[in-house]
């Protein structure tokens, strides 16, 4: 099998830049959400459509990012 419909895009969630990578493997869409800096993986999800996989990843990433504390420096 090969990756098809590979796309990447950026968006902001809870004030943080997030990178979404989505592709199809067979009949399943896979999505991975990373924070842009430093590029750490936040969520890896699957779905029967691109929209479903991305929405799950966005929800999970938002949940994690909303917990991040910003300190005054």
């Amino acid at each position: 099998m090969r990756v098809e419909e590979f796309t990447e895009r950026s968006l902001q969630l809870s004030g943080w830049d997030v990178h979404l990578t989505t592709y199809r493997l067979g009949e399943i869409y896979h999505c991975k959400a990373d924070n842009v800096s430093p590029g750490a993986a936040l969520a890896r999800t699957t779905g029967e459509s691109r929209e479903v996989a991305e929405q799950k990843a966005i929800e999970r990433a938002e949940q994690l990012l909303s917990r991040t504390r910003r300190n005054r420096v």
Binding site: W16, P38, L65, T68, R69, N71
Partner: peptide, 25 residues
């Protein structure tokens, strides 16, 4: 080599990941 936010002390770990230290900088 961490992100600028970790270097400055604004955050204690990459955004969205568990904090593993007591202080930033």
């Amino acid at each position: 080599v961490r992100s600028p936010g970790e270097y400055s002390g604004e955050i204690l770990a990459p955004a969205g990941l568990p904090e593993t230290c007591q202080r930033g900088g």
